[in-house]
Design a protein around this nucleic acid. Structure first.
Lengths: 125, 125, 125, 125
DNA sequence: GTGGTCTAGACCACC
DNA sequence: GTGGTCTAGACCACC
C-alpha cells in the first residue's frame, strides 16, 4: 500500500489559477500578483511561486514580461479544454472512489441527484 | 490561500481498512496483520500503525486481544453507516469541486452518466 | 543598444543533449547521467541540472522514473523536427549576421562554398 | 563540458562599432559619442566604455583627441580586412554548428540557398 | 519593482 | 542511489 502525499504547492497554485480563470474571476489581460507579492501573501518561497508561474507560462495560461509583471493570456477556447480536462479528472476520481465502495452506476446517479437537491447553492443549468 | 496537506498516514490506514471491509474483503472475525508486520510491509513507523489500530478499536472496527492479534469486529449494520458516511463525503467533495468550475446540477448528472457509460467496469445495480 | 548575455546554463545543457541525440550518440532508451552525477561532473548546482532535465521531460526528449534514472525517449520523427528547428535557427542567425555586414546573397553562397572546400572534415552528402 | 559565458561587454561594443563602420553608418572623420554619453545611454560603467574606446584606438579604428572627442579613423582598406575577418569567424561558427548536427556540405549550401530565397530582404549582389 | 538564473542545502519518496 | 519539492538567499537585467 502506498500513501497519498500532498500535491506539490506549485501544482496547487496552478490549479487555483485555472479555477479562477474558469470561473471568469480572471480574464485575458488581467495582471496577476507579482511573484514576490504572491510569495509573501501565501508565506511560501518565491522560488515555489516562480515555478508555478513558469509552468503556467509553458501552458500558455499567462505571459510574463520582465519588469512588467505576469498577465493572463489564455483564450476562451483553451480555457474550455482545460475545464473539460479538469472535470474529467474530478469525475474519474469520483467514480473510482465510489466503485471502491462497490456502488453501482445507478446508485451513484441516484445519490448524486439526491445530494444536489439537498445541498442547494448550485446554478440551474 | 491555504494549501492542502497530506492526510495523516494513520487516517489513510483506517480509510483503507474501512474500504476493504465495505468491499467484503475483510469480514467479521478475520485476522488483520500485526502492527509490526504492517509497519514493515508499509515501511512506516510502528507507532503510526499503532495509532491507526487504536483508533479503529475505538471505532469498534476491530478488536485486539493481547497475544492473539487484531480481528475485524464490525457488524453489518455499523458497516452500512460507515459506507454511507464515506459516500457522503465523496459526494460532497465532488459537488464542491464541480461547482467551483461552475458546472450546474444538470450538467453534473449528464456528465456522470456519460462517464459511467464510457469507462465501463462497474457493477450493474 | 543591448548587450548579449550568456545563455542560461540549463538551456545549454538541453541544447547539448539535443545535439548528441541528433548525432546518434544518444539513442532511445539510453540512460543519461543522474542529476547528481551530471552536477558533480560539470561542477554546477544539482538544481540547475534538474531544471534542464525537467524541461527535457516536458519536451518529451527524456523520461525519468524516480529511483531509476533518466532515459532518452525521443523518437526518430520528433528528432527530425528538432534538428530542423535547430538548423533553421542557426541559418537565420548566420544570414542576419552576414546581412548586418552587407553581404549579399550570392556572396554568402560563394563564401560558404569556399569555406567548405577549405576546411575539410565534413561528411560528403 | 564547459558552458558558454557572455562575451565581455567592451568586446560587444567594439564589434558593434565595427559593424556600423562596415555598413557605412560611420565613416572616417565622424564623431562618436563621448565615453560619458555612451556609458549613460547604455547604462554601463564608464570604465567599460573606456576600455572599448582604448582598444579601438589601438586597432586604429578611432582616434581620440583630448578635449575634442573621439573620431572614426579607419580607412577603406583596413575596413575591408576587418570585414573579411569578421565574416570568416561567422562562417567558421556556422559550419561548426551545422557539422555538429551532421549536416553535409551539399545540404548546407542547399539549405542556405533556400533560406535566402525564403526570407528576402537582402541586397542583390 | 519586476521577473530570471543560480547556488546551497534540507528533506522526502521510491528503489 | 534516484529523482522531486521546497526553502533561503544572492545577483542580475529590465523598467
Amino acid at each position: 500500500m502506498d500513501f497519498d502525499v500532498a500535491r506539490p504547492i506549485y501544482q496547487q497554485i496552478i490549479d487555483d489559477y485555472k479555477k479562477r480563470m474558469i470561473r471568469g474571476e480572471l480574464r485575458q489581460g488581467d495582471k496577476i500578483p507579482s511573484q514576490r507579492e504572491y510569495a509573501e501573501m501565501a508565506r511560501i518561497n518565491p522560488n515555489t511561486v516562480q515555478r508555478a508561474y513558469r509552468e503556467m507560462e509553458n501552458l500558455n495560461l499567462v505571459q510574463t514580461s520582465r519588469g512588467q509583471g505576469t498577465f493572463v493570456s489564455v483564450n476562451h477556447e483553451e480555457l474550455e479544454a482545460i475545464k473539460k480536462d479538469m472535470a474529467a479528472a474530478v469525475l474519474r476520481s469520483f467514480v473510482t472512489e465510489m466503485r471502491a465502495m462497490q456502488f453501482g452506476d445507478k446508485e451513484m446517479l441516484e445519490m448524486l441527484g439526491q445530494a444536489l437537491t439537498s445541498h442547494e447553492g448550485g446554478t440551474e443549468k
